[in-house]
Design a protein around this nucleic acid. Sequence first.
DNA 1: GGCCGACCTGTGAG
DNA 2: ACTCACAGGTCGG
Length: 330
Amino acid sequence: MLVHTLFYPLPELHLEHTLICGQAFRWKLDKEGWWSCLLPITDAPSGAARHRLVRIWQDREQVYYQTFPQQGGLAHIRDYFRLDVDLPSLASDFHARDPHLADALHAFPGLRVLRQDPEECLFSFLCTPAAPLYRIRGGIAALCRAYGDPAPQGEVAGVLHHGFPPAHRLAEASLPQMQKFGLGFRAKNIRETARQVLANGGAVWLSGLRSLPYPDAKAALMTLPGVGDKIADCVCLFSLDKDDAIPVDTHIRQIAQRRYLTSPGGLGQGPKTFTRKAYIQIGDLLRERFGPMAGWAQQYLFYHDLYEKGAWGSYTALYKYDAEAVRPLQ
DNA sequence: GGCCGACCTGTGAG
DNA sequence: ACTCACAGGTCGG
């Protein structure tokens, strides 16, 4: 069991902030206190392994990791955590563009936007509408245990990992069972979107959206049932390389209206309900302010707002090692 | 174009 | 104990 090291200080990559800030829902702390997840290998050639088990931990100066299979592990980690992005420079650029962001940048150094597998990202965010984090995580974990493949290496550090279920499995998933997982009305969207993704060409079609311009990729996603502006932008930002995609959820909307749109004639006095026009306006405003990496600024705003509302404490509790979570379902 | 309400359901504030 | 609104939205009328 070889442990590799990467010389990366906390301000470059902070695992906890990055992994619990609400962009990925499947990472867990194992018995030894390492973050671990069975990650899909996007566009894996047929015959090759479709998943890689990643365990990762850090102290002040270094990041330690193990991957199974080991071959290709470093490249996978660099890609997933987007270690090519110079985060300290980006943070100081954000600070110069808007001192409002200083608190969030200071509170969460090393928070990075991830580059996730598009299929996992899409179906994960289909679980999020009007749901608190415990429901999102619980539903996704249950989907993986019911329809995902268990890790070939079996239990590692007290956890039996499962891969994220591929679309062809979700397309045939049982609606009543998914609702039992706490997914409620989201279940139908998951199954119907899975069917439509397959009809469009499956995972290859989805990851192919990476090479389209942002507006085209977003429009393609929004043809899927249950995918509106917000979820489409989540998939664009967290998995399709669209760094200027801005998911405008209820938190971002409140921040924007409170902080940026209070001037007379601004959205502050606009329509009562949250309209698509307002969605576009807020996204454009943040893009104008923060530039081509505006999606990253959005993530700082979002997570900092959760922190200020006191949700942070209960969020971290969700990630403690949980022996229950390693048992196979039903 | 804007403005409802419905959609599932566990949780926590009152 | 027991409501009751709420939670990273979306869709149709």
